[in-house]
């Protein structure tokens, strides 16, 4: 038991170091690009303690919209807070700072939870409390390291592995006229093999996932459901042993997050009975949030080829299709 406590203590020290480093990077970035009039440290500390209370789901009907509303308020609140902290930051930098601070807050939560169990374990001398945290420790540490590298990537505005889907969409829509669409997304009408593709991605290059569900719904409604297929491209977690950057195909709404966007997409494709295809690019949690690996970057080319092939095989000339690149578009333009 003593050995386990020691191990937790060692990890806790490392977590504290990571958290403090993250906080420092966040504050330095705000000072660098935000030109704050006062020291932002106190505000950053407050930000790191923010809590979001999820809606009550005892009566689950309509809980998706409640959750979405709560998340919207949270997002607005964060952006307001950042504009106060960093008045000189432009829209791109506000988004990047928001992501940076969220990563710092996540590190803070991890540190506090482990500390809670560490102290609780020492107080109660309960083997089970100590054991359960010690058993999960390797996974938790991996997650913390991932958040730490995410934080660095966000503070510099570097593209991350999760942005692979957005990058595929960016490559497809590059050079075509883009239109802004609901909640931080862009759509471009792209001719592809005689078909018309409506390519959707979150608006870059600021750190942003947008609301692709809302955007897809909007395009489907705009064309009265006359869409031959929806193709979604997203980064997905790989299993250990799988190659990073492997491309796979499948069926279904390929989108992570809190589930509100997936819900909207599933609702609207059901209404018009539109088939949905997914192209996923595999990567592990560390790669998903740290600066994009070369293997994953290269995989986006293959994903573009797969999308083209899917369109050729699944649709006829003259059809309209929706191609949505999902993921955080930080460091990816369009």
């Amino acid at each position: 038991m003593y050995i386990m406590v020691r191990e937790i203590e060692g990890s806790l020290l490392r977590l504290k170091f990571i958290r403090d480093e993250g906080r420092k990077i966040a504050i330095d970035t705000i000072k660098e690009i935000g030109a704050p009039k006062t020291d932002p440290s106190d505000r950053v500390d407050q930000f790191m303690e923010y809590v979001t209370i999820p809606p009550e789901s005892m009566d689950p009907a309509g809980v998706v919209w409640k959750l979405e509303h709560i998340l919207d308020i949270r997002d607005d609140r964060f952006k307001d807070e950042i504009k106060l902290m960093a008045p000189a930051a432009d829209a791109t930098n506000v988004n990047n700072l928001e992501n940076t601070l969220e990563a710092a807050a996540a590190l803070n939560v991890i540190y506090k939870v482990i500390r809670h169990f560490y102290i609780l374990g020492k107080k109660t001398l309960s083997l089970y409390i100590i054991m359960q945290i010690q058993m999960l420790l390797p996974l938790i540490m991996r997650e913390a390291e991932a958040y730490a590298s995410a934080l660095k990537a966000f503070s510099h505005g570097q593209p991350i592995g999760d942005g692979a889907g957005a990058l595929v969409a960016a490559k497809l829509m590059h050079g075509h006229r883009k239109k802004k669409i609901e909640k931080d997304c862009v759509v471009a009408k792209v001719p592809l093999d005689g078909r018309t593709a409506y390519v959707i991605k979150a608006e870059g290059p600021g750190g942003n996932v947008g609301k692709p569900g809302e955007a897809i719904k909007h395009v489907i409604e705009e064309y009265d459901g006359k869409i031959a297929t929806v193709i979604m491209i997203d980064a997905a977690l790989k299993l250990e042993g799988e190659k990073p950057g492997a491309v796979a195909e499948g069926i279904g709404a390929a989108i992570g997050g809190p589930g509100t966007e997936a819900y909207k997409i599933e609702e609207s494709i059901l209404k018009y009975k539109i088939p949905i295809n997914a192209v996923i690019i595999k990567e592990d949690i560390g790669d998903a949030v740290s600066p994009m690996r070369k293997e994953i970057f290269d995989a986006t080319e293959e994903a573009v080829a797969r999308v083209n092939r899917l369109i050729k095989e699944k649709t006829k000339e003259g059809d309209a299709v929706i191609i949505a690149g999902i993921g955080n578009t930080i460091g990816v333009g369009q």
Binding site: I33, H156, G157, Q158, P159, L167, A170, H174, G204, P205, S290, P291, M292, R293, K294, E295, I296, F297, G331, V332, G333, Q334
Partner: peptide, 29 residues
């Protein structure tokens, strides 16, 4: 460098009249 992003235009090319563009940003493991 800070401010770089994929598909960013970087002004005219030093060799011809074309427009330079960032085509890739990645990390090599």
């Amino acid at each position: 460098e800070r401010g770089d992003y994929i598909l960013k235009d970087l002004g005219t090319c030093s060799k011809c009249e074309g427009t330079m563009m960032i085509t890739a940003i990645y990390r090599e493991v």
